[in-house]
Simulated assay, not measured.
Amino acid sequence: MKYKKIITLSIGIPILLGGCMNLDLGNHDKNGGKTEANSQAEYNQNLISVQDYTGQGYELDGGEETTKIAEAHREEIEKAVKTFFLDKYKTKVKVHHIVGALNAASVFVESEGEPHFHTYAVVPIDVKAEEVLTDKVWSQEGQVESAINSGIYAMVFDQELGKLDDYLAKTAKQEPVVGMRQEAVNNVMASGFHTIYYYITTFDDSLDKVYLKYLKNPNKSKEEWKREIKHSKTDPESFYVTIHLFMEKPNTEPDKSIFDQIVKDMENMEGLAPGQYSVFLHDNTINKKAGSNSQENTLERSDPTYIMKD
């Protein structure tokens, strides 16, 4: 079975869902500096402290009308999406957030138990008739499959990821940095296995077999997955671990000394899960409409200079 792989190397998935990602503040039209200043002011109005962000204000293009319709039919949508995941992906999910999009509602879900992951489904909406088409629920090709694979990866390399968890939690205690709130992860993130500090995405044709094995036996234990995957050849270039940290205090620029130390620690750390690691250190803000921080002051170590672990 072949399907298109989805790699998400920044917070959230607004591009995949048609979200508000027009962050080009340098609008070079005839109004020049005035237009740019207005765009910057509008952008700044959407910034919120990461500690206060739970997903409020998240928007997708074309969602003005459909949001109201989706809210009026929330119970129907939740039931349809849960049935969709159980029938197609053999997975029970919790519905966290429903966001109106163009002629549809995007539904953010979290799997129950393991493999653990966050993803989304789409429920079409007939705006004119104000009806939700619960018999036509769909998901972007490869999106859920990749999310399931990332959850299985996290099961197989649980001890190695536990080392990363401990390091990031310790760093957050010792340094003035924080991760996202769990509520924000639940409500607007759909990248697969996701913690408050990082998420995992996968990109490997060989993982098609893993997904198919999961469909045949979704109750396979962690030990069984480890026997099948961990001791076989694992290509670290097939896995991406993306770390996002934020400054703890408002109106604080990303601290380069903290960032450099984290990068150095990651480079020298042994016993991590195989993969290509990226590190981002943002200021204290997040764009509530997009669920991400895309400001120019962000410090990053990423493509093409990933931190490789094998």
Rank of each mutant, 00 (worst) to 15 (best):
T201Y: 04
N149Q: 14
T134Y: 02
G100N: 04
V279E: 05
K309D: 01
M266I: 00
T195I: 09
I15S: 07
N103Q: 07
Y214Q: 01
Q182T: 07
E130W: 05
E145K: 09
S191L: 08
F193H: 04
E64L: 08
Q295M: 14
N217D: 12
R301F: 06
I307V: 05
T234Q: 06
T66I: 03
L299M: 09
K88G: 10
Q56E: 05
N293L: 11
D208A: 14
L23I: 12
R301L: 07
Q56G: 01
S257C: 03
G33L: 15
Y306F: 15
Q182P: 00
N27E: 13
Q159K: 14
E65T: 08
E112M: 12
E64H: 06
N31E: 13
P176I: 02
Y277R: 04
K220I: 00
K220Y: 00
I13G: 10
L60T: 05
K92G: 09
H194P: 00
T119Y: 02
K209F: 12
A121V: 06
N219C: 04
F85E: 09
S294D: 10
V93K: 03
F117G: 10
N293H: 10
T298E: 09
R181K: 13
P124Y: 01
K230P: 05
K82V: 15
I98M: 01
L9Q: 14
Q45R: 11
T285D: 08
V241T: 11
E76S: 12
I196C: 02
G57T: 02
F108P: 00
K209W: 10
T201H: 05
F259E: 10
I125R: 05
G33Y: 15
G151Y: 02
E270C: 06
A147D: 03
Y53T: 01
L133P: 00
G62H: 09
G179Q: 10
D135H: 07
Y306D: 07
P274M: 03
V107S: 08
G142N: 06
V93I: 12
E237Y: 13
A105N: 13
S257L: 08
S10R: 09
D265A: 11
M21T: 14
S257H: 08
A70G: 07
K92R: 08
Y3Q: 04
G19K: 07
P218G: 11
K256V: 14
M247Y: 00
K213T: 03
Q143Y: 06
G12L: 07
A129V: 03
Y211W: 02
V99D: 00
E64D: 09
I148S: 03
P254Y: 03
L60H: 03
E130D: 07
S294T: 13
D29I: 13
I11V: 11
P218C: 11
V185D: 01
G55E: 09
A80C: 13
E296P: 04
D265N: 12
L23Y: 11
Y214P: 03
G271S: 05
I229Y: 06
K30C: 13
A41Q: 13
P254N: 04
I148C: 07
V107I: 15
S302I: 04
A184P: 01
D265S: 10
